[in-house]
């Protein structure tokens, strides 16, 4: 899932201080799981802003709300009229949610209430780790299920580099060397010989490159577009 992390209150305050009516809008899926931007954290941030406003003697109305997800319109549409009553929406969704809501809300600014950190797993309660970089071209079958794109500091495809030190990365003793893990894992799986092959220079075009990436499922889009057209012809408005 997407892991987010909280922004310092001063950074938030700088964003919101000139608004009169602020909604801290929580997202109850990924960023809630990592305790960054669910409804509870939205309420906490709202409380902090209110206190900060009181410190500055500013009259500011700050409320909070939450919906299941900010990345699908069906989730926030029912409350959009309410949301539009605010001067500012501080979304504690990931960046996806902030973008998405911003495009659909009309003339209310949507600001980011948290930092979107990475795609990660819940390693242990309260500990989240990045395991995928969303590069769009998965090679995990070649690397023992351990992603060098996300987990090697240098995204090496033919590691390890000379910086591996007792299984750790040269960057920090806190970071496991991904290639060390790959070698050990493939040793265990009996597939180490596959690592003798040089993986060629990658085609990074499936990664962050050339505008937003889209996945379009033709078998679904075909039907949906027909339906959308029908609604439009009937004078209905497309969201």
């Amino acid at each position: 899932m997407i892991i987010g992390s909280q922004k310092p209150i001063e950074e938030i305050w700088d964003m919101v201080k000139d608004f009169k009516k602020v909604l801290v809008f929580g997202c109850n899926t990924c960023v809630a799981v990592c305790h960054a931007g669910g409804e509870k954290e939205a309420e906490t941030i709202a409380s902090l802003i209110r206190m900060r406003a009181a410190q500055e003697g500013k009259a500011m109305e700050v409320n909070h709300m939450g919906v299941m997800r900010h990345c699908e319109p069906e989730y926030f549409d029912p409350v959009l009229d309410e949301v539009r009553k605010y001067d500012l929406v501080l979304s504690t969704a990931c960046g996806v949610g902030v973008n998405f809501l911003s495009e659909r809300i009309g003339n209310v600014p949507v600001y980011p209430g948290i930092n979107t950190s990475f795609y990660g797993a819940v390693e242990a309660p309260g500990r989240f780790v990045e395991l995928c970089a969303g590069c769009g071209n998965c090679i995990l079958h070649l690397t023992g299920g351990i992603c060098p794109v996300a987990r090697c500091s240098k995204t090496l495809m033919n590691g390890p580099c000379g910086g591996t030190n007792k299984g750790k990365c040269e960057v920090s003793q806190e970071i496991d060397c991904a290639w060390y893990l790959i070698v050990e894992r493939m040793k265990k799986l009996g597939t180490l010989d596959r690592l003798s092959e040089v993986l060629p220079a990658r085609n990074w075009s499936t990664s962050r490159d050339g505008g937003p990436r889209r996945v379009s499922l033709e078998h679904i889009r075909e039907y949906e577009e027909r339906e959308e057209k029908k609604v439009e012809q009937a004078g209905g408005k497309k969201q």
Binding site: P160, C177, Y180, E184, L195, S196, V198
Partner: peptide, 23 residues
């Protein structure tokens, strides 16, 4: 190319060199 003969994982280091030579 550079090569670190004695870093972890030590038994993979020859393969590491092999790859550089093959390249």
């Amino acid at each position: 190319a550079s090569w670190t003969p004695m870093a972890d994982p030590i038994d993979f280091r020859p393969v590491n060199l092999l790859k550089k030579v093959n390249a």
